[in-house]
């Protein structure tokens, strides 16, 4: 069937032009400064220096990481019980619950984020409810609103990932554990939880990555003053027109994401090594 091989060739040219070249351009711009062309090409780390020596950018970086980490933690804490309960159901109930979880994911993310703007307004429904209890708080244009928006948009990924790994689990393992005298809590901590960790890990990846790079959720729910790293990249490209600095920041972001993924995978391995039942 070698005659079919050539069918992949057009796409190889396409990915070279549309995926590889843009990636190389990001690297090239990140390590050069404005005014460079092919003849005066000079390698520099000036852009990275500019980022790490400016207190404002460091603050933005810290805030982005803080928001992303908190979002991920909330998604795990709220998503795990939901996935666990859904995994206990069967047949039509399960199908219906999964449909209810997936349905919002099909609706445009901008539309779903916009919906929160009305709810969180100063005279909005949430504040009217809170005022019954004598509370009057500013909700829109705060970190709370941004985290809420991110949890809302990304938690379905977490629930579905954990649910998949819980569903794949061999139920007889729990029966075996309880036959051997483990109580419900022990069954959960020693059998169910370790076996569902791969789902938690891929859920964390699916939540953390968009959370750290998002720029429209902070803009819509955080207001113009709420700047995350994605917003800095956006403004460098679309307002300031500084491709070199913008490329450098996106490389910094990519490296941070890679490091966090690496740590997450490492933690997963250690946990499984110590407490898992198969390693």
């Amino acid at each position: 069937m070698r005659q079919f091989r050539s069918m992949a060739y057009p796409y190889i040219i396409w990915i070279a032009a549309m995926i590889v070249v843009p990636m190389l351009m990001i690297f090239m711009y990140a390590f050069t400064v404005k005014g460079n062309d092919v003849t005066t090409f000079r390698f520099t780390i000036e852009n990275f220096g500019k980022f790490f020596s400016d207190a404002i950018f460091i603050e933005v970086l810290k805030r982005s990481l803080f928001i992303a980490v908190i979002t991920t933690i909330i998604c795990v804490l709220l998503g795990y019980p939901a996935a666990y309960i859904i995994a206990q159901t069967e047949g039509k109930t399960k199908m219906f619950l999964i449909l209810l979880i997936t349905l919002p994911m099909w609706i445009n993310m901008l539309v779903r984020t916009y919906a929160w703007m009305g709810i969180l307004q100063d005279d909005g429904i949430l504040n009217s409810i809170l005022s019954i209890f004598g509370l009057d708080v500013k909700l829109l244009h705060t970190s709370f609103a941004v985290i809420l928006g991110m949890v809302y948009n990304f938690i379905p990924f977490m629930i579905l990932q954990i649910h998949t790994s819980l569903s794949k689990m061999d139920k007889s393992l729990i029966e075996a554990a309880s036959d051997l005298g483990a109580n419900k809590l022990q069954c959960f901590l020693r059998v169910t939880l370790p076996l569902s960790l791969p789902g938690v890990i891929s859920g964390i990846t699916l939540v953390f990555l968009p959370a750290v790079s998002s720029f429209f959720i902070p803009k819509l729910l955080g207001g113009g003053q709420f700047v995350l790293i994605g917003n800095v990249i956006e403004s460098q490209f679309l307002t300031a027109g500084n491709w070199n600095f913008g490329s450098a920041i996106s490389l910094i972001m990519a490296v941070i994401i890679m490091i966090s993924m690496y740590i997450t995978k490492k933690v997963d391995k250690v946990e499984n090594g110590e407490r898992g039942i198969f390693n």
Binding site: A8, I19, V21, Y29
Partner: peptide, 24 residues
């Protein structure tokens, strides 16, 4: 190699893909 490069747009944050294409 192709599968690896193919998965880059899925693995990368969207904003990175976006600025790459913008510059291209």
């Amino acid at each position: 190699v192709v599968e690896q490069i193919n998965s880059l747009p899925i693995m990368n944050p969207e904003i990175v893909t976006a600025i790459g294409l913008l510059m291209l």
